[in-house]
């Protein structure tokens, strides 16, 4: 077991897959000589050369489209979009092409492409650069959407995503890049897509999250544990396919569910999960399913306002305590 950052785990996964499979190549803005805006591709241009670590103009629609074409012809492109905010100009390629081609071609051809892109907020990047839009994509059939929340998952899921025969939107998080954690030494370590994980066991409340919010959830669980309240934290890991059964199994145990996410709650991951939980666990619930999300405003620049808009630990804890109070637990 080695300690390293989320960023380094991603870099190693890219390095290992580039070395393992000559069909894998990277494409994106400033990912070569400059090593990527968040340095995830550090050293790879030097190691694999400009053919396999390709720099592109600022033209998301163009290079996502190029990635789709390459994937249809048998290559395995890993396209970096500098942040999820910039994917919006390539929506037609992602939703109308990448996600549809296997269906439109009657299964004859697929798009084994990964789009890596970070979302998240908290660095005063304001309204246009502080969004968590993954739920928009997770609502679309034909594309997988994953959002690892640990170093080991970042490594293991990126490798699985690259080996997947269908398009995968791989959502990273700006705040996660410097988070450290342990990674298994096994060079063949992979993590399947579409499986949630119980990352902390508890009996009183199920707290579901994905991406960086899992870190917050774990801290809330630690805090409340000092008061004798045991929260079970479920890391979704994948948003599509969504492993509702693992969540349901936990809720059947705890009878209470809270979903936290950095994106907006309305029509969000929590909305989808609340619907699934009500169906799967109706007779097990002791209180209504509760959600915590980002404030439903464009992200403010002002630091105090930004903090007020984020689903910080204090808000998650307050929601958890509210749910427990409804259940007659102090």
């Amino acid at each position: 077991m080695a300690d390293l950052t989320y960023r380094e785990a991603l870099r190693r996964a890219l390095d290992d897959e580039l070395a393992r499979d000559p069909d894998v190549f990277l494409m994106g803005e400033e990912i070569g000589r400059f090593e990527g805006s968040y340095k995830v591709t550090a050293g790879l241009w030097q190691k694999y050369g400009p053919e396999r670590v390709r720099e592109t103009p600022i033209s998301e629609e163009g290079f996502v489209g190029a990635g789709i074409g390459a994937a249809m012809m048998g290559l395995r492109p890993v396209v970096e979009i500098m942040t999820i905010n910039f994917i919006l100009v390539a929506m037609d390629q992602v939703i109308n092409h990448a996600a549809k081609i296997r269906y439109m071609f009657g299964g004859a051809v697929g798009v084994p492409m990964v789009i890596r892109t970070p979302g998240g907020a908290g660095a005063q990047l304001t309204a246009q650069h502080s969004q968590s839009l993954e739920a928009w994509f997770a609502g679309c059939p034909g594309i997988k959407v994953v959002a690892p929340a640990s170093v080991a998952d970042a490594y293991g899921m990126l490798k699985t995503a690259i080996r997947d025969d269908d398009p995968v939107l791989f959502c990273e998080n700006l705040v996660m890049y410097n988070v450290t954690g342990t990674m298994p030494d096994d060079p063949d370590y992979t993590v399947p897509l579409g499986r949630a994980a119980v990352v902390r066991e508890g009996s009183d409340l199920t707290l579901v999250a994905h991406s960086y919010t899992v870190q917050r959830a774990l801290r809330v669980a630690d805090t409340m544990s000092r008061d004798g309240i045991e929260i079970e934290v479920v890391d979704l890991r994948s948003l599509r396919p969504l492993d509702a059964e693992t969540v349901a199994e936990s809720v059947r145990k705890t009878s209470r569910a809270l979903i936290a996410e950095e994106g907006w709650s309305t029509y969000g991951v929590g909305a989808e999960l609340a619907a699934r939980i009500h169906r799967l666990c109706f007779d097990d619930l002791d209180a209504p399913v509760e959600r915590v999300g980002g404030a439903e405003v464009p992200m403010p620049y002002s630091k105090p306002l930004e903090l007020a808009a984020l689903p910080l630990e204090s808000k998650i804890e307050a929601a958890a305590r509210g749910l427990l109070a409804e259940s007659g637990i102090a």
Binding site: D284, D286, E326
Partner: peptide, 30 residues
Amino acid sequence: SPIARRMADEAGIDLAAMAGRGSGPEGRVV
């Protein structure tokens, strides 16, 4: 609450006398 109803049914408990006396919001039996 749904699970409270299920548990009461399974235990053969009649909750009628608990109306308004539960510890949840508005006296919900939990």
